[in-house]
Simulated assay, not measured.
Amino acid sequence: MKDTEILIHELKKLLNGGTAHAGLKDALNGIPFGVLGERPYGLPYSIWQLVDHIRIAQWDMFEFSKHGNHISPKWPDEYWAKNPEPKDESEWMGISE
C-alpha cells in the first residue's frame, strides 16, 4: 500500500468511529433531556455545553479544511454555548442524531 492509501484508510477508520472510542451518537444515546444542563461531578461545563463545544470545534476544523479564507470563532468565548442547556429539544436533536 502507498503512503497516501494508508493515510486515507486510517482517516476513514477515524471518521467512521468504532476503533479506540465510542462515536458521539453512541455516547449521547439515552441521556435524558432534563439532565443536559447539569454539570457532572462539579465540572465547569454542562453536558450540553460539552456537546455543543464538540460541534463548534468540528465545524471549525471542517470549514478550515475546505476554505483557505475561513475565519475561526474567537477562542475561547465563541467555542462554548453560553446557556448551560439547549433552548429546546429540537436544538438537542439537531446534534444528537
Rank of each mutant, 00 (worst) to 15 (best):
H70W: 09
D77F: 04
D3E: 11
P86M: 02
T19C: 05
G37T: 07
M61P: 01
G68S: 14
L28P: 06
D26H: 07
T19N: 09
G94D: 12
Y79K: 03
E5R: 13
A57M: 14
A57L: 09
N69S: 15
K87T: 01
I47N: 01
I56N: 06
P73Y: 07
H67L: 08
P84R: 04
N16M: 05
E38Q: 15
A22G: 01
P86C: 04
I54W: 09
A22K: 13
H21L: 12
S96F: 08
R55Q: 11
D26Q: 14
L15K: 09
P73A: 10
Q49T: 03
P84V: 02
A81K: 01
F62W: 14
A22E: 06
S90Y: 02
M93V: 01
I54E: 09
T19D: 09
A57Q: 10
H53W: 04
F62I: 12
T19I: 05
S90K: 12
L43G: 11
M93S: 12
H67W: 02
Y41N: 14
N16I: 03
M1A: 15
I8D: 13
D26C: 00
G18C: 10
H67M: 04
A20L: 12
S46V: 02
A22R: 13
H67E: 08
K13A: 12
I95F: 03
K2D: 13
N29P: 01
K25A: 15
L50T: 06
L7Q: 12
W75Q: 06
L11F: 12
G18P: 11
L14Q: 13
I31A: 05
S90M: 08
Y45G: 00
I8W: 06
T4C: 03
P73N: 08
A27M: 14
Y45A: 04
A57C: 11
T19S: 09
M61G: 12
H67I: 00
A57W: 08
D3W: 05
K82F: 04
E38R: 11
L28M: 14
K74L: 14
A81W: 01
T4S: 13
G18W: 08
D3Q: 11
E5L: 13
M1L: 13
M93T: 00
H53R: 11
E10M: 07
W80Y: 10
K13R: 14
G30C: 10
V35H: 05
W92Y: 11
I31D: 05
H53M: 07
E63N: 13
I56Y: 06
A57G: 07
P86T: 02
G23S: 15
I56G: 09
E85W: 01
P76W: 03
F62G: 03
S46N: 10
A22D: 05
G17C: 05
R39M: 06
K74A: 14
S65I: 00
W80F: 14
K13Y: 04
V51G: 09
L14M: 14
Y79F: 15
V35E: 13
Y79R: 00
L24N: 12
D26W: 02
M93F: 06
L43F: 08
D26Y: 00
E97T: 05
S90N: 13
K66G: 02
